[in-house]
Design a protein around this nucleic acid. Structure first.
Lengths: 274, 274
DNA sequence: ATACCCAGTATCATATAATAATACAATTTG
DNA sequence: CAAATTGTATTATTATATGATACTGGGTAT
């Protein structure tokens, strides 16, 4: 590796390229294989070998071997005609396994279904994952767009209403630190990028016990979230309801949705830790 | 490896232990890492190092290194207190990526939502994966149990109504071969294990264009499925409705559910191949 | 208390198994 | 039909994964 090092690294590469992680208890071949899985996303769905090479920044031979291994093990499917790789049902199998390890979802599910039928609007459940929230359960209604039906989506916690609801249950110093440092991404023209403004919203959320956001992820979308508190008062997750600003005003939301949302969130009592 | 081979292999091991797959384009370290992921399932949700060793049949040191790598890469979480590993939200992130690669789900989703609201009963969509069906979309209703809300579940295609519906669109010789050879598992006391009987059911299904099963996965559960046909007439997936035998009779199902189910399935037109 | 046992952690010499260059085949493109 | 691009196969080289072993610490029973 000393002599045959990568000479320059193409300018388009991911920055820094992560020189070496640890040593003895780090299996880099496994890490590279996982990296190849992560290359598939919303825009990269059916990839050729060379595309995988470009996107992963790894060597052609390496990608060849890793992709082949993933195929043999059932994690990638190769279309014999186009020679392109795509994810397999094994990826859903992992989600299935995940759900059995997350007791909070099991607790919440019946209440979420009930809420969704009562409100007739999209109901979601999200959990915090580092500085993002992740949708773990989704009950769509007719006018829900496809993206909003998909579990596993990660969003910046600061901008999404479930994130704000969860954070608001933290000690004030903690959530203020998060508001200062956690990443933000301009998703729509109106996504709040002003951290001072976010801090004000958070203060209001902490005070009221629920969060309301608008135009943050999609224009004309109103998100309302209530935290699911544990015995220690800290939130493990949040129940979210998503409605259209065409049909709803913040006032009506607060009158007709929030009470049910809070009721549902409060009725979900996490046992120990999720 | 010639000298330090595994001496005997404990009697409890998985059979044969897969001596070697291929050689030059097979990265066994990656395969082992994936094997470790597969160890997590419905019953094994939070695993200690030694449990992972037992379940995977791999060396203690190997598991140590692989698990550590999976943790560093964000695919396993370790509880600092119990020292146990569990799946992370990355597992749901893979499901999210999967959904963008499966255009059939995107096509079907709005129709499935509509159907679920019209019927007020659990509506699912499943796809064939080898000899299993996999649930790719689920719209639960109040009395749906937790397991039936989870995507990614694999079931023997021969026993599940979506599997029968899909198979019934194949040329008769093909589905007959499947009925003869594909695996069966006794899930309830009444799961049909008689292949001749299954063949009769399949013939009926092929004739009628939809399948009805009862007591196959859960007692008192009736499953009704309609195939989603492509341009070639072959099914890429199936729409399923699941109801309780306490509230429904096969006759009423056929009158009040089947027409809507068929209508929904027919309105989903797969473009090219999923 | 103390000794034991078991689970988790760390270290290291060894050679297996991953590497990346290269060559070949099969495409698609001009 | 040539040229370029992508996918496939082969190989020498050594970096990297291996698994035995030893260390640490918590829990339990003696």
């Amino acid at each position: 590796m000393a002599s045959r090092r990568k000479i320059t690294g193409q300018p388009g590469d991911t920055p820094a390229e992560a020189p070496r992680k640890q040593d003895t208890l780090y299996v880099s071949s496994l890490a590279k294989g996982l990296k190849l899985l992560k290359v598939f996303n919303r825009t990269n769905t059916h990839l050729s070998l060379t595309e995988m090479v470009k996107l992963s920044g790894m060597d052609k031979s390496a990608v060849q071997r890793l992709a082949n291994t993933l195929m043999v093990e059932g994690f990638l499917h190769r279309d014999p005609d186009t020679k392109r790789f795509r994810p397999t049902h094994a990826w859903l199998g992992l989600a299935y396994a995940y759900y059995w390890s997350d007791s909070l979802v099991a607790l919440a599910m019946p209440k979420l279904i009930e809420l969704s039928q009562r409100l007739g609007e999209t109901v979601n459940m999200a959990e915090l994952s580092d500085t993002s929230i992740v949708y773990v359960a989704r009950l769509p209604c007719q006018r829900t767009n496809y993206e909003a039906t998909l579990i596993g989506r990660h969003l910046p916690a600061l901008s999404a209403s479930p994130g704000q609801a969860i954070l608001s249950t933290w000690p004030e110093a903690d959530w203020r630190a998060a508001v200062e440092t956690w990443p933000l991404r301009q998703m729509t023209a109106r996504t709040t990028m002003d951290r001072a403004e976010l801090a004000r919203q958070m203060a209001r959320t902490a005070e009221r016990g629920f969060s309301i956001t608008q135009d943050q992820m999609i224009l004309n979308e109103i998100g309302i979230s209530a935290p699911i508190r544990g015995a220690d008062g800290l939130a493990h997750g949040a129940v979210q309801c998503s409605v259209s600003a065409f049909h709803w005003t913040p006032e009506r939301v607060e009158r007709e949705l929030v009470p049910y949302l809070l009721d549902t969130a409060n009725s979900i009592a996490p046992a120990g830790r999720g």
